[in-house]
């Protein structure tokens, strides 16, 4: 039920920060659903009405070299239900750190093929409660991921595909016995891992990026379905396929300032809300090299 564990997608693109450049930004995202999948059964729940998640994420991306970037993100999340009695939650969620490396790049008749490897870690930054779905702000699991990504730029058009395996640590909940599909006499919950797949195509110049995105998250073995009229649980199988649109525009007037925005729609899922979301944000590039490099893209 928690859409919050899906990675911020900003790092899954074929763009590197140049060496010694630091890009800082903030993103606001609003996401809501009034229907969800209980296992495979799609339903509404009048006791929650519309469940919304608002997120303000602070992001940074630093170019260690032209081919190696370090990216971080930390969101502050607020949840709310429009009906029923259950109180919404708020707090700082998980800090994610990603090392992104451009490992191979080749020019083919003026077009560019590149491969990237991304390693990510995320850790909860507060003691928020995971076992309060669908209104908990996250799942409180530490994660480690490896993502392989390929990007092809053809003139001003591009396509990027990537896939990641996300390993999740066990979590502890505030109960010492709980029931999944069997009883567990422990406060520890085995969190199933996940595989993320992301594909995007669109138009890309150093001024403007406009892209369509397809994204899938598939929980690996160990998860289980929400049974009829039951409450969700952190180790549920939570699968989700969404489509969306992202845009990024680097302002002419203020060099280094970029505006981003986008929309996402969940088309199918399992034990998750069918959320619609939109987001917008601002990013600013600081150049610590004292040179006059101003763009965030490598010279293609």
């Amino acid at each position: 039920m928690a859409a919050q564990h899906f990675y911020a997608q900003t790092e899954i693109d074929g763009i590197m920060m140049a060496k010694n450049n630091f890009c800082a930004g903030a993103i606001y995202e609003y996401s809501s659903w009034n229907k969800y999948w209980e296992g495979t059964y799609k339903r509404e729940n009048l006791n929650f009405g519309t469940v919304s998640t608002q997120k303000i994420a602070f992001n940074g991306n630093y170019g260690i070299t032209d081919n190696l970037n370090v990216i971080f993100s930390i969101p502050y999340v607020t949840t709310n239900a429009t009906a029923g009695t259950m109180a919404g939650q708020k707090g700082f969620q998980d800090l994610s750190l990603t090392l992104k490396s451009l490992v191979y790049e080749k020019e083919i008749k003026g077009n560019w093929l590149s491969f990237y490897v991304l390693g990510g870690l995320s850790v909860p930054t507060s003691n928020y409660v995971a076992d309060y779905l669908p209104l908990s702000i996250g799942l409180h699991s530490k994660t480690a991921s490896v993502r392989l990504m390929s990007d092809y730029q053809y003139g001003n058009l591009f396509a990027t595909v990537s896939g990641a395996y996300v390993k999740r640590s066990n979590i502890k909940i505030d109960r010492n016995v709980y029931f999944t599909d069997v009883m567990h006499y422990t406060n520890e919950v085995d969190m199933p891992d996940g595989i993320s797949f992301n594909a995007r195509v669109g138009y890309r110049t150093s001024r403007l990026i406009a892209e369509a995105v397809f994204d899938n998250w598939t929980t690996q073995k160990g998860g289980f379905d929400i049974t009829t009229n039951n409450m969700p649980f952190p180790s549920n199988t939570m699968n989700m396929t969404k489509i969306g649109f992202n845009g990024k525009y680097n302002l002419k007037q203020i060099s280094g300032l970029a505006i981003i925005g986008g929309l996402n729609h969940v088309i199918t899922g399992r034990n998750v809300g069918q959320s619609d979301s939109f987001y917008g944000g601002l990013f600013y590039v600081l150049d610590f090299t004292k040179k006059t490099k101003t763009t965030t893209t490598d010279e293609k």
Binding site: L68, S101, V103, V117, G119, K142, A144, V146, R168, S169
Partner: peptide
């Protein structure tokens, strides 16, 4: 060198996850 760094990082990740 970068590849090496990435592999090291990946190993670190695997160790990290209990």
């Amino acid at each position: 060198i970068t590849l090496e760094k990435c592999c090291l990082f990946a190993l670190l990740l695997l160790n990290f996850s209990c």
